[in-house]
Structure formats: structure tokens, C-alpha cells
Design a protein around this nucleic acid. Structure first.
Lengths: 384, 384
DNA sequence: GCTACTAATGAAGCGCTCCTTCGTAAGTGC
DNA sequence: GCACTTACGAAGGAGCGCTTCATTAGTAGC
């Protein structure tokens, strides 16, 4: 509403075309009348819009559905297959990639393990392999990629440089946008992974329909992503959501309660310790339960800070530990209930490990929408 | 961009009319050509728009400016005087009101002292007096009031009920919207006072031009207001910004450091104690300085939480203690510099005690804009 | 196999909004 | 009083969306 400047007549057509595409994308093939009803336009106008979209290659006709009363209506669908998107999740230990059509429907997925302290070159190679893996799996050519969206750990500045990364040494002070821009021939978007996870949950996960969502990444490291008004909240310098940096929020060392619990068997590899503790707590081990209580005590402080400041509709628990959401959720709820002014819904992620990749794809889809009718903005193929 | 659905042609005209009004409001009288250039429309179209706006009574012609080359251009201005707005600040000890024209230019101001523990009826009477005082001062009739916006301490829910108020006993569980709706014959908007203060600072105060602003109310009580993307951030349940409720954020008791400082002379009334401490610190009293340091230590925790979570462009220090911003600002900056990921600008409020009233007026003006062309929404007079 | 019914199609005509273009009008400067 | 500058106002045209109506392509019933 704010940046709306009316203007030309053609702008009106653009907007109407865009809403038509959004409707088509959301609901599969639609008849002209259905489309007209949904967009609020008249049928003849809608017809003109679809004709234009078909000429542009965005929309195509599909065979009419049979068995209906009256003359069968022509049906149109968004040509989601006329281009491809890739979402990448650059984690500490794994690099995931997924290739999707323009609707965000996943066509191929890959995963490349990578060690935390791998040198930069290895990590970059793993990224390239993850993406090319998706391409071969789905028999897609690199030239058919329109957009790659990348979610990564660390704080990324507006230009796509990694300005902070506690976990991954090779990642610090890296011009990630530059590296990936050289690697792939299409546009590359870079975003913080927790923000993308938040987006995925609010688009296709447990928070679908909620516009104001806080995503808590609980795992070996802590993080948070924020959706406000249905949009990713990046902040003025793209550093929003970094509450784990604040000692008083007690997030940074919170996982230690689970890692150092006495009920973890000796010899357990450190990356599995927290999982053991959570399982033991589920089975009723009082020592483990005590550790979990202390963990959630800490978790709740940062979470309450976010809830009190933002007042979101929903808090989504994601990340590695959210597999044990049954152990964590009610405990977190109880503490937030005491600390918060207005209690938000608190739910566990339904997308799990796929969260960030899915969010990256959703992010790419959103960007696509925005660029559909501003061809000067980015090098998007218009017809095919 | 998101809620934009194109649609009718007349919608286009509405939007263009609205941008025209915004330009006129912002820049005083404008010629047709200037207006056309600013809005991006052609001169003939602009002429039609202004003709319509003049017919509606929103815009009027003013004498052309002299001494220019060529034929003098007709000039148009927004008829800011065709209606009036009132902003009210319901504080603990004072009730302020200001009457403005539709541009938000203040025409009259009043203040009504009221004691913290005054019964509800007295407080409501004081509100009415503050408003009617403005009316008589500016010789305005109650019927010429279009909109009253009220900022108040406490947490207000979406329906305008006070659901929490630590400071003012009479305020709790009050249906404020209902009470004020019965009191005044026009529409009444209610909002949290810190949010309105944030709005005022970002519209006409020190944060003018900044879209992402955190306003910290530092005074006998602590509060915060958030502007994101140029809009007040209310949160899903209108409870955003209440970080002072979190003990770990150390805001709630922070003022005690100043109140209980040993350098405050015995017999000082409690409400003046903090002021004494701040003055003494300015004069170099080491005991007072120590108290201030501890105060800012606490203040910085909650402030850092907000900055880390939101990553605003600017943090504005307002409220009673901000009169001593010279004592506080650099100390706060130093701490935030250590705690935050990206350091925002930190500035002192320039509007002082007027902050909330001004914000209320700005809030009313904004609402007006939104309702200009949706007459079904509220009972706004269209012509005069 | 024919008729009645249903629902979508396609074309025609209208109104609104914006655009460009042009001759005209009203000032200033010499 | 004349040239120059700048704005005004009217005319004509293009784009977009709307309503209306005859036509078309199916199903359902007899």
C-alpha cells in the first residue's frame, strides 16, 4: 500500500496478470470463470489477461475436464515446468540442494556431507556437486536454471558477504555472493538459513497461513528466523534474529546442558550426546529430565525475548533437537506462558531437515513473482 | 505490493488521487506541472485528478506565485483546514492533548495533571477536559473533529481494552475504546504510547527518514515502541515491544539504580530522585556516575535484545530520562557496540514530552490517508 | 435420436483513465 | 510594443475493464 503509485494503465494489467498467475499457481488448472471470480475481474477481461500470459509462455491450456454440465470450460494452468529453481542449504555438516519447478514443487534432491572444518575450496566444490547432482537427477540443463536461492549459517550482509560465522571457520569474511555468482550462470540469492526455515514453515509447514512467525532453530547451535506480515524480516543491515549473541538471553551455551548430561554413555561422540539426553528424558531418566529442564529454562529466555518484542502469532520449533519436540514443546510452553504477555501458539516444525532447502525454494519463488513484470530488474527468461 | 489486486479502473484513479494528496500534503502548494512530475502522471491527467479533488473539497486553489517567467501557473494546496484531528497522551501523571489540522500541524495544546492513583472517573474527566480545552483554544467545534488518536500507557488489545497496566491501577481491564467512543462523537483510535512515540520520531523527530526504528522510553517506567518498514509494529495481539516484562532483560527494576542512589539528598520526593542522580552524574559525582553506569548496564541488556532481534536502523532514546541524554547516550552506545552484531545509530529524542501526542496526531493522519477513498470504512466527512 | 437444459464462448459496444499534440493565453524582459 | 517563456485548455487516440447477447458444446431425459 505504501509504495503504490498507480500510474500507467498498463500497470493495472500487470497487477491483474500477477494475481492471475498467483491464483493459477496456488490452485492448479482453473477455468476462465473460476479465475475471473477469484481475481474479481470480469470474464472477458480475464480472457484477455490469459491470452497475453499464454503468448508470453507463462500459461498454457490443458484439456477440459469431462462430465460437467453445460459446455466444458477451457482450463488454464501455470507453466511451472518452463523453468527451474534450486534451493541450497549450506549447513555445517551437510550441504543440501533441491531442484523445483516454478511452482516450488520439488523434482530432485541431493545431499553432500562436508566436515565442519573443511577448507573453503572443498566446501564450494560440495555446493557445486549438490546443485549439479540435482540437475542430473532431474535431467535439467544448467541453462534452464532461472534462480538459485541459498540459505547458509552465519550472518550475511546486504551484499552477500559472510560477516560472522561462529561454527564454520572457512566461512568467515567470505564473499559468498561473488563465489556463487562465478559458479552459476543465473542469479543467486543469499539469505540466512533460519530465516528461510521460517519462510518454509509459514508457506508450506506447520505455520501455513500465519503471517507473523518466529522460527527457533534448536540444535547444536541456536538461531532464529522471523517472518512479519508474511515477509522475511531481515533488518536494516540483514542482521535480524541474532538474539543468540546476547549472553543474557542464555542461548549460546544452552545446548551444553544436553551435551554434558551425566546420563550420556561414555564414549558417545559429542555430536550425538544431546540426542541421547533427549531420548533418555523421553524414557523418564530423571537426570536427563533435569538437564532438559535446564536447557528449556535457557531456551525460554531468548524465546520469551522474541515473543515479548515481536508478539508473533506462532513460534515454530525447528532444527535438530526438534525431532524431540515431544520432550521440549510442553516445557517451553509452560515457561513462555509465565513469561509472556500474550501467549503465541507453539508448534514443532513439520519440515524437519528439509526446512531450509524448502525455504530457499519458497524464497526463490517469491523473488520470481516480484520480477515477473519488471524484466529490467533481473535477467529472467520471458518465453520459452 | 502484497495485498495489491489491481481490479477496476477507478482503483487506479483512487491511487493516483492518493499520491497527489500525499505530495500536496508534504510540499505545500504545488503547480499542476510540478504535481504531474512528482506523481509521474501527465499534466492533463493530473488536471482531471485535481479537478475531482477540488470538487470533493480536499484540495483548493491558491493565488499563483508572482515574478516567474512565463504564464503564472495555478497552484493547488491540500485543504488541511477542512477538518481537525486530536492526539491524546494519557500518561500516569499528565494527560496531554493537541489539536491539529489534517496535515498534522498543531494548532492548540493542553495538559491536565492527574494523580497516578486517581479513580477512573477523574481520569476520564481529565481526558475530556484536555480535549475540550484544545477545542476552545483553537475555536473548533466538536463536530469538526474527524478523528481522535489516543496513546496510553499499558498494553491495549486489538479491541481497545487495557489488558495490563502496571503503573495506573484504575486503568486495568478497562474498555478504553468503549469509554472514549461514548465520550466523543467521532472515531477514536487507541494505541500504546511508546509505539506512537516511535512513530513521531520517525515522522518528524530525530529518526525522520528512517523506516526501522526502535524507540526506548526511559523514565520512571520503561517501555519500547517499534517501527518496521515505516509502519508501527503492533504484533499479532497488539502486544509487541513489551520486553520490560522479561526479568532477564533487566528493564523492570533498572530505574531503581537511579532512584536509590546515595547522592540523592534526603527528603527529595521520590519522583525527583532519578533526576537528581542524573544531574549529579553530569556534574561528576562518582557515586551518581556509578549508579548511572549500573542503570545503563541494565538498560543496555533489553536494548541489545531489541537490536539483535530487529536490527533497526536507529535507536531513539526518549521518555523522562532522555532529558539527560548527554549522560546516557555514549554509555549506552559503548555497551551496545559490544553486545550487538551490527551497531545501529543511537540518538536522543528531539520531541521530548510531546513525543506521544505528536505520534498520536501522526497516527491519525496516517489513518486518514488510508480511509480517504474507502468511505465505507469509517464515518469521515467527505466535503465541507 | 430428438429435445430441453446448462454453462462457457466470442464479439460488439460502452465508459473510464491516461496519453500525446496542438493552438492559445498570460505573464516577464528588453 | 515585441519577443520569449511557461502554463492552460481542448481535441483526438489508445488501453483496459465492464456489460450484454447471440452462439456453441456438452449432459440429461424421453
Amino acid at each position: 500500500m505504501a509504495d503504490l503509485r498507480g500510474g500507467d494503465l498498463s500497470r493495472l494489467r500487470q497487477l491483474n496478470s500477477l494475481t492471475a498467475i498467483r491464483e493459477l499457481r496456488g490452485s492448479g488448472p482453473l477455468t476462465l470463470s473460476a479465475l475471473a471470480e477469484r481475481t474479481g475481474l470480469s470474464r472477458p477481461s480475464m480472457k484477455e489477461v490469459t491470452a497475453e500470459l499464454m503468448a508470453l509462455g507463462w500459461v498454457e491450456e490443458v484439456p477440459p475436464s469431462q462430465g460437467t454440465m453445460g459446455r466444458p470450460a477451457r482450463r488454464y494452468r501455470f507453466r511451472a515446468d518452463s523453468g527451474h529453481l534450486v534451493g541450497v542449504d549450506i549447513g555445517g555438516h551437510n550441504i543440501r540442494a533441491a531442484l523445483s519447478d516454478l511452482d516450488g514443487r520439488v523434482l530432485a534432491e541431493t545431499r553432500q556431507p562436508v566436515s565442519l572444518d573443511a577448507p573453503l575450496a572443498d566446501r564450494l566444490v560440495a555446493i557445486e556437486r549438490a546443485v549439479t547432482g540435482c540437475l542430473t537427477l532431474s535431467r535439467t540443463r544448467m541453462e534452464d536454471l532461472w534462480l538459485i536461492a541459498v540459505g547458509t549459517i552465519g550472518v550475511i550482509d546486504i551484499e552477500g558477504r559472510v560477516i560472522y560465522s561462529a561454527a564454520v571457520p572457512a566461512w568467515r569474511d567470505l564473499d559468498l555472493a561473488g563465489e556463487l555468482g562465478r559458479m552459476f550462470p543465473c542469479q543467486v540469492l543469499i539469505e540466512n538459513d533460519s530465516r528461510l526455515a521460517a519462510m518454509a514453515e509459514s508457506r508450506r509447514g506447520v505455520a501455513r497461513g500465519a503471517n507473523d512467525v518466529v522460527f527457533l532453530h534448536v540444535g547444536r547451535r541456536m538461531g532464529a528466523g522471523i517472518m512479519l506480515g508474511g515477509k522475511v524480516h531481515r533488518g536494516f543491515g540483514a542482521a535480524a534474529g541474532e538474539i543468540s549473541m546476547l549472553p543474557e538471553a542464555r542461548w549460546f551455551d544452552a545446548p551444553e546442558h544436553l551435551n554434558t548430561c551425566a546420563s550420556v554413555p561414555a564414549g558417545t561422540p559429542p555430536e550425538d550426546a544431546a540426542g541421547h539426553t533427549l531420548s533418555a528424558a523421553r524414557d523418564g531418566d530423571p537426570v536427563a529430565i533435569e538437564a532438559v529442564e535446564r536447557y528449556v529454562d535457557d531456551l525460554a529466555v531468548g524465546a520469551a525475548a522474541m515473543v515479548l518484542i515481536l508478539d508473533p502469532q506462532m513460534v515454530v520449533l525447528g532444527g535438530g533437537f526438534s525431532r524431540s519436540a515431544d520432550v521440549l514443546l510442553d516445557r517451553l510452553r509452560a515457561r513462555l506462558e509465565r513469561k509472556c504477555m500474550r501467549m503465541p501458539e507453539v508448534r514443532a516444525s513439520t519440515l524437519g531437515d528439509e526446512c531450509v532447502v524448502m525455504g530457499a525454494i519458497d524464497y526463490a519463488v517469491e523473488h520470481l513473482d516480484e520480477q515477473l513484470f519488471t524484466p529490467d530488474k533481473g535477467p529472467l527468461p520471458v518465453t520459452r
